[in-house]
């Protein structure tokens, strides 16, 4: 396999004696969409900012596109695109003017109009940024991150504050980035987002990675399957590691008794269940 786009080994960072990252390790392959999932304050943004070259690390080996981001040389910055969690770009300019300014910083750049098409802002290219809606400004953010034709794109909570429709649109955009062959590091505290977009997910909690794998693996590693139904209106929940056997016993019995299992439902844990379990573990330890 080719060299990974991102390799992190035992990364540590603390602020004023408080540990933000207690030694995390992961790799992101070229062309992969990797999700960092965790509650606020878990260390997602610290991790991303170290990889982007904004923050120094206390210890550990970090390689991004073959560079040490701690030195963040210009050749490195030519090849990354960054969407910050919070940013509010200069608003008196038009969308196109702003993109042309940013495009000018890169030696290898994409056509501005092409990028605007990609993020769905072609019809807004001559609009002043301050007249755009929040969702549209976020697309401007993404367009700015893409105009230098990066190999690696960092998306720090790209859909926070979006309504459901805007989120779907953003997801489609991120999928189209992936189809362009970009490597994407995505942070999010939305589980469905990680599940929808990421090839692999690292669940991060209190500066440590507590689960790492494909969304399917995480769910597979999750708790028992739930069987729900109602008897005389009373809800009944059975948790089982052996759903086939349990279901067979239940339905055979019901058939023998000539009863219907009302509102019968078999539910595998979602990523959300797995995630909530992890967060609750934390509270339990708290």
């Amino acid at each position: 396999m080719a060299q990974p786009a991102i390799a992190v080994q035992d990364l540590r960072k603390s602020y004023d004696g408080n540990t933000a990252l207690g030694g995390i390790s992961f790799e992101v392959a070229e062309g992969e969409v990797f999700g960092l999932l965790g509650p606020n304050g878990a260390g997602k943004t610290t991790t991303v900012e170290i990889l982007e070259g904004y923050r120094t690390r206390d210890a550990g080996d970090v390689t991004v596109l073959g560079f040490d981001p701690g030195e963040a040389p210009r050749a490195f910055r030519e090849r990354i695109g960054v969407v910050l969690q919070q940013s509010e770009l200069v608003s008196n300019l038009t969308v196109r003017e702003l993109l042309r300014i940013f495009a000018g910083y890169y030696s290898q750049r994409r056509d501005v109009d092409e990028v605007l098409d990609l993020v769905g802002l072609a019809d807004k290219k001559n609009a002043r940024i301050k007249t755009l809606s929040g969702g549209q400004r976020r697309r401007v953010d993404l367009a700015v991150a893409l105009v230098g034709d990066p190999d690696l794109v960092f998306l720090d909570e790209p859909t926070t504050g979006f309504d459901p429709a805007a989120r779907r649109t953003a997801w489609d955009m991120i999928r189209s980035l992936r189809s362009l062959g970009k490597t994407i590091l995505l942070t999010t505290h939305y589980l469905d987002e990680a599940q929808q977009l990421a090839d692999r997910v690292a669940v991060i909690r209190s500066g440590a990675i507590v689960r790492l794998g494909t969304p399917e693996e995480l769910i597979g590693a999750g708790g028992p399957v739930e069987i729900r139904f109602r008897r005389n209106g009373e809800p009944i929940v059975i948790e089982t590691e052996e759903p086939t056997r349990a279901l067979h016993e239940l339905t055979s019995q019901a058939l023998a008794d000539g009863r219907e299992l009302e509102q019968l439902e078999v539910r595998r844990p979602t990523l959300e269940d797995v995630y909530l379990e992890l967060v609750q573990e934390e509270e339990g330890e708290g």
Partner: peptide
């Protein structure tokens, strides 16, 4: 203003020295 809106931070990730 540019620092607090994240514009400077954003510029810092571009190749502009």
């Amino acid at each position: 203003g540019r620092r607090e809106t994240g514009t400077l931070k954003r510029l810092r990730a571009t190749p502009l020295p």
